[in-house]
């Protein structure tokens, strides 16, 4: 795969839509990796008795499918080695449920150079299958070349 360079990324550029399925397998591994045993995420009987009326998925899980490599993947290109994840913003706007099929729409919201470093800002909006926006991620890496 060809590397995507800073100059290839254009402000306002829309990346191809992606879909992501939050299967139980993905959720279980994710919760183990972040070491979070909140029963609201893992115990359906418990979760049913709460105001959430069933299990939910922590919204920060957005981080696993809005990575730079994920958002670049549909272009069939890869990031150059040495990319650094500098900053991140999230807004959570709707509950995420196990089994959700998510649609992710990403644009290159900004790119700029500061103190000799090249920054890119990817904005990813995430929708569930009912079209409800469950959240937005702004991911800003330092691009190596």
């Amino acid at each position: 795969m060809k590397e995507i360079l800073y100059d290839d990324l254009i402000k306002g550029m829309q990346l191809p839509d992606m879909t992501y399925a939050l299967t139980d397998d993905v959720i279980d591994k994710y919760l183990e990796a972040i070491d979070d045993l909140n029963p609201l995420y893992i115990d359906e009987d418990y979760a049913k008795k709460t105001s959430f009326n069933g299990r939910i998925v922590p919204p920060i899980s957005m981080a696993i499918y809005s990575t730079v490599s994920s958002v670049i993947k549909p272009l069939k290109q890869k990031t150059p080695p040495g990319l650094i994840h500098a900053s991140q913003k999230f807004e959570f706007t709707g509950l995420v449920r196990p089994g959700d099929e998510l649609l992710i729409k990403t644009i290159v919201e900004d790119k700029y150079e500061k103190k000799g470093r090249k920054y890119v800002v990817f904005k990813s909006e995430v929708f569930n299958k009912d079209g409800q926006k469950i959240g937005t991620s702004w991911l800003s890496p330092i691009w190596p070349k």
């Binding site: 909140n38 959430f52 922590p58 919204p59 500098a86 913003k89 999230f90 807004e91 959570f92 509950l95």
Partner: peptide, 18 residues
Amino acid sequence: SRDFGNAWYVGGKLDIRM
């Protein structure tokens, strides 16, 4: 999430630097 539940899950914002 632990302290705020829905006020975080729906309406939460995070803005951080590594």
